[in-house]
Design a protein around this nucleic acid. Structure first.
Lengths: 167, 167
DNA sequence: TATTGTTATACTCTATAACTATA
DNA sequence: TATAGTTATAGAGTATAACAATA
């Protein structure tokens, strides 16, 4: 493992604190958590003015890509639970961004759609979210960026397959 | 972008729901969040019997690798905040896993150390945590696994550099 | 005047279970 | 009997600000 074994944390006075990672140097989970933290910190700061619940953009994106789908399917893919989806969709509906209709084939299910206003806001927020990732996209070569996506996807599939065979 | 553009979510009855990702197909943050979710789900299930606070292993690992360091430095690197560190260290100390001493050079600071029991538990939990990542490590080639670490580190550094120059 | 650690507090999120209506 | 959606609630986690001791 010859990736970084220590992390520089820039302190306010420019002092260069460098803590060793120890056993965590070999923990994928620790690295993923750190990157997730850095990314979500930025994106939630950028979204703060909208005063939407976390998961709102994900919910809108998944509705737009899968119009008419039920809440429970969205919950599965968005890694949210079915009761948090309720309040997100409540909120989107109250703001005129999404519509809940009843499924005709199974009247227990809602069929979700975005309104034109929802589509517009989704695109606007997507651009903002992409902008928070600019530095990463620009700092890596096109090939590296592509590889990063592919390897994360592959890792996620492998992590998921863990569940399937009960190991 | 020719990585996956949809996500299969295995439902209980074996039905193969496949939702499209839409705009999220190009969002690094979404992929990282998903992988983080899958990893942390497993590791927190594995750690549940210990009844420790989240962040306890990270705290122990950072103390072990940087004995004598202060709480505030740990907070920075562990992406935790200084007040959550207090209760984690309280808990570790109450269980005889860590020791808080006052720094002699700056008496505002604590100097943190692990006890032998803390060292032992840390190694035990590290092995458990590594085991939750087995499938990923085994499912990727050695080269892919190494590349994944390197690219995540590089992305994290770039995300961090965002902060520095105020972009 | 600033910083470390601590405490208190309020807020948000999450997880759970119960309930309804449908199947 | 099981599922989709909803609601209520309790618990956990987080963020904030204020405070004491020290610098």
């Amino acid at each position: 493992m010859d990736t970084v074994e220590s992390i520089k944390s820039a302190s306010s006075d420019g002092l260069d604190l460098e803590l060793k990672l120890g056993l965590h140097a070999s923990r994928l989970g620790f690295r993923v958590r750190l990157l997730h933290y850095l990314l979500s910190e930025r994106v939630s700061a950028a979204f703060a003015p909208y005063k939407l619940r976390p998961g709102s953009l994900t919910t809108m994106v998944l509705i737009a890509a899968n119009p008419g789908n039920s809440q429970i399917e969205l919950a599965r893919v968005g890694s949210l639970d079915k009761s948090s989806i309720v309040s997100i969709v409540d909120d989107l509906e109250a703001r005129g961004l999404a519509i809940r209709g009843r499924s005709t084939s199974d009247r227990r299910r809602n069929s979700l759609f975005l309104t034109p206003a929802g589509e517009k806001l989704m695109h606007e927020m997507h651009l903002i979210a992409m902008a928070t990732e600019d530095r990463i996209r620009n700092g890596l070569s096109a090939q590296e960026y592509k590889t990063l996506f592919e390897l994360i996807d592959k890792a996620a599939q492998l992590a998921n397959s863990d569940m399937a065979d009960g190991t």
